[in-house]
Amino acid sequence: SEIVKHAEEALERGEFVRIEHNGRVIEIRNEEALEELRRWVEK
């Protein structure tokens, strides 16, 4: 997914991403959060 790709690229640069999706906000700061995002987006 485009969202996950964006988050992965930001993590590689040492940045973090805040994503709003279906009214929820998730902050991607590490691999664990990235995995959570993947599960969340796939639903």
Rank of each mutant, 00 (worst) to 15 (best):
S1H: 13
E2T: 10
I3E: 03
I3G: 03
I3Q: 06
I3P: 03
V4S: 02
V4N: 01
K5D: 03
K5H: 06
K5C: 05
H6T: 11
A7G: 02
A7L: 05
A7W: 04
E8L: 14
E8S: 12
E8C: 12
E9G: 07
E9N: 09
E9I: 09
A10Q: 06
A10R: 06
A10V: 05
L11T: 01
L11F: 10
E12M: 15
E12T: 12
E12K: 15
R13S: 05
R13M: 05
R13Q: 05
R13F: 02
R13C: 08
G14W: 03
G14E: 03
E15F: 08
E15V: 09
F16V: 13
F16C: 14
F16D: 03
F16E: 05
V17L: 14
R18M: 10
R18F: 10
R18I: 15
I19V: 13
I19E: 01
I19Q: 01
I19G: 00
I19Y: 08
I19M: 05
I19P: 00
I19L: 07
I19D: 00
E20G: 04
E20F: 15
E20K: 09
H21A: 07
H21V: 15
N22D: 09
N22V: 06
N22C: 14
N22G: 10
G23K: 02
G23Y: 04
R24G: 05
V25P: 02
V25R: 04
I26S: 01
I26P: 00
E27L: 12
E27T: 09
E27W: 15
E27S: 06
E27F: 14
E27I: 14
I28H: 00
I28S: 00
R29I: 14
R29P: 04
R29Q: 08
N30H: 06
E31T: 13
E31L: 15
E31G: 09
E32D: 10
E32T: 09
E32N: 08
E32K: 10
A33G: 12
A33N: 13
L34K: 00
E35R: 09
E35W: 07
E35H: 07
E35S: 08
E36W: 15
E36I: 12
E36Y: 12
E36V: 10
L37W: 05
R39S: 11
R39V: 08
R39T: 08
W40E: 05
W40L: 09
V41Y: 09
V41N: 03
V41D: 01
V41P: 01
E42H: 08
K43D: 11
K43C: 11
K43I: 13
K43G: 12
